[in-house]
Design a protein around this nucleic acid. Structure first.
Lengths: 204, 204
DNA sequence: TAATATTCTGAACACTGTTTAATTTGAATA
DNA sequence: TATTCAAATTAAACAGTGTTCAGAATATTA
């Protein structure tokens, strides 16, 4: 295993991922390039392609790290309250705050598409499921009688709304006209959905 | 007003916009470039920059056209039913179908960001508001007692969910695991939200 | 030390958005 | 009609992009 520098492939990968995240935070998605990442870790572009199949693969790992981060940010605020509905509202606001404070990473996470016909790896899908599971828990606490299937669907419905509001809101496509704050809209949405979900299932 | 060809600036703009849309439909967002658009209308790149400030401006007009198209697609299906709730469900499914059938244009509409600090033009915001107004109408029919402000917010809440479900669903980030169809999830979401909205307002 | 395998670079390729000097062109003027 | 002049258009250039790969540099093995 001859190597010029003293960085293993794994180290090199991790260095590149960290460098990419730093560039994203400082210069946004448009400011990111393979050469800049390479330069930032003291290597040439070619080396990057020795460790990643292509730039899309690097971005996939960056997004995976963002997903971990995002989950941490959401779950951190989850234990502040005991009321499940209150927990879900707090998680939704944490989701929004993360998107606001890490706009470039958040934007990349949802705008990046793998080349056509290349499916999302199973380990990445698992990370997504894991985030949803964090949302599912308080929802289950709220409705213990629901089966796994109904719970899974309700989680997706609820979080689609939270995500959609963040996506449209942060790209100025909600046209609230300054009359409402995005935080209020999201809180109100969660309340309304939870209320309707309970009622339509004949609960509460 | 000497001109070499017989295309006015306005004609040139419209030709470029149409060409860009055609390229998007055929080769996706990644297949679009200034040179390809120029070549497609029989001109050189430089001419494009005589008519548009930059590529972002061209894409803005493309997105405006998509917004018009999208609204038409939604409103077209709106008059099939008389029940407002049914209308809203049909509109949501039309939104999904448009996103599926015009994935590149839909994707560009929501992923394209103008350069930093450059605000969305008022005429473009008006188009967004106009789409929301189409959703607002059946919602008002459903709840005539609501004031303009509450109606506006409910419209945004409802459509955030529809949009979020389409966005996540079509990029394989909902992880439904093949257990549910996206159409069913969206229909169920609209039902649940409408139910909860009515109940939380002390109506119905 | 010599042979071999791995790491890494530098240069190239085809592309991108954008700018601008030079040219072509049509129309107005003399 | 010939000349002038301004607008339309191009071609070429610039700096950047993702990606590849022959060859140089380095470490391990014999």
């Amino acid at each position: 295993m001859a190597r010029r520098s003293d960085h293993s492939r794994e180290q090199l990968q991790q260095m590149a991922i960290s460098a990419a995240i730093a560039i994203l935070n400082e210069h946004g998605v448009a400011g990111l390039s393979a050469r800049k990442v390479a330069k930032s870790i003291g290597y040439t572009v070619g080396t990057l392609y020795l460790v990643f199949k292509n730039l899309d693969e690097l971005l996939l790992y960056v997004n995976a790290a963002t997903l971990d981060d995002l989950q941490r940010a959401i779950m951190q605020e989850a234990n502040v309250h005991t009321d499940p509905a209150q927990i879900l509202k707090t998680m939704a606001l944490a989701y929004l705050r993360y998107a606001q404070q890490h706009s470039a990473r958040w934007s990349l996470l949802f705008s990046h598409r793998l080349p056509a016909n290349q499916p999302i790896p199973a380990w990445f899908e698992q990370k997504i499921t894991s985030v949803f599971d964090g949302v599912k828990m308080p929802l289950q606490q709220l409705h213990p009688e629901l089966n796994e299937s109904a719970l899974l669907q309700a989680t997706r419905e609820l979080w689609s709304g939270v995500h959609g509001a963040c996506d449209l809101g942060l790209s100025d496509k909600l046209n609230l006209g300054g009359r409402f704050k995005l935080e209020e809209l999201i809180e109100s949405f969660v309340e309304n959905y939870l209320f309707g979900f309970a009622k339509s299932k004949g609960i509460a």
